[in-house]
Computed example of a mutant assay.
Amino acid sequence: MDPRNETHASNFLLMEVTEDAELQSLLFSLFLSMYMVTVLGNLFIILAVSSDSRLHTPMYFFLSNLSINDICLSTTTIPKMLVNIQTQNQSITYPGCLTQVCFVLVFASLESCLLAVMAYDRYVAICHPLRYTVIMSSHFCVLLILLPLFIIIMDALLHSLMVLRLSFCTDLEIPLFFCEVVQLIKLACSDTLINNILIYFATSVFGGIPACGIIFSYTQIVSSVLRMPSVGGKYKAFSTCGSHLLVVSLFYGTGFGVYISSALTNSSRNTAVISMMYTVVPQMMNPFIYSLRNKDMKGALRKLISRIPSLL
């Protein structure tokens, strides 16, 4: 048990993407392209919503916040991985690792909460249309963003502070391409019971409660839509939820894939790749899902793109 000797951690080693030099160049280009598409796609969504007065509604307010969060979550993980590929140095400092842990916790948890808030917005719009403007007031919409964000930041800081009290082993290799709190705790030699309890509690709160909220909202939506007399009304109601359902399926589907892969496979590399997809693919696909399936968004994007040459 030599690697279990305690040490004062100064650097951690992240998993190497690949040892093949030619494949490294290909993967660098691939992840750089995915990152650029993620940033530009979500930036276009934010600009389209802010520039078109027709999109100044709660639904698009939450969508623009989701796009901001997607940019932040991707920026937390991908640039460091690109630097590591380019320099062929997998080292990350202890403060840098803790910072990455904190930001990953914040933006991943906020993504889940935003999807739940967007489901609630659709629930109010479809099940209580006459009271929609009263319930989804601007102050209430801002509160639905700021309150979860404040709680999430406090939780992420608590996790980071609890990691600071741990003593780490001489084996400081993290089997992922980025620092993640669960993997970091596994490297500790000191007692991690409290840390693990906090992780299970946070997962239940920021993963379980939003998921239950989404399920409840769509149960009520389906029930309400099925009672509508006209086929056109049913189609219109379901069409407003289609994009959100795709985004929810992609986010929770990749998250479930990470859990299943870690439970069924012994390959840490496979788990690492799937974990990376969890923080890259949903954030990259969200702008395409909303822009291609939403008529108002497509119109706002066309206007925005047509104005770019005049601005230049």
Rank of each mutant, 00 (worst) to 15 (best):
S160L: 08
C97A: 15
H139C: 11
N89S: 06
I151M: 11
Y94S: 03
V104G: 07
Q100Y: 01
T133K: 13
V106L: 13
I92H: 02
I85F: 00
C97V: 04
L105G: 09
T87D: 07
L149C: 09
L164Q: 15
V117C: 08
V117T: 15
I135F: 04
L144V: 07
L158D: 08
T99P: 04
L172T: 14
R131C: 00
M162T: 11
I126P: 04
F140S: 04
T93L: 06
H139K: 13
C169Q: 13
A108P: 00
L161H: 14
S109Q: 15
Q88W: 03
T170H: 10
R122Q: 14
F150P: 02
V106C: 15
F107R: 10
S91D: 09
E111L: 11
P148R: 00
V117L: 08
I85V: 06
D121H: 11
V163C: 11
D171H: 14
F107K: 09
L110D: 04
T87A: 11
C141A: 10
H159F: 12
S109H: 14
T170S: 15
L172Y: 08
E111W: 08
V163D: 01
S160Y: 07
H139Y: 12
Y120P: 01
L149K: 05
Q86C: 08
I152E: 03
I153Y: 00
L98V: 08
L161D: 12
F103W: 13
G96A: 03
V134K: 07
R131P: 02
Q100K: 05
A119Q: 08
P95H: 03
A125F: 06
L105R: 07
L157H: 08
I145P: 00
T99L: 13
S91E: 14
T133H: 14
S109M: 12
Q90W: 12
A108C: 13
I92W: 00
S138T: 13
L105Y: 06
N89A: 00
A125H: 07
I85W: 00
S137C: 02
L110W: 05
L157W: 06
L110C: 09
L114M: 13
L115E: 12
M136Y: 01
S160P: 01
D121I: 01
L144E: 12
I152P: 03
V106T: 11
Y123F: 15
N89V: 00
I85R: 03
V104I: 14
M118G: 01
T133G: 08
A116K: 07
P129S: 09
V163T: 11
M81Q: 04
A125E: 11
A119P: 04
L143T: 12
L166H: 02
V104C: 12
G96D: 07
L164A: 12
P95A: 01
T93A: 08
F140T: 07
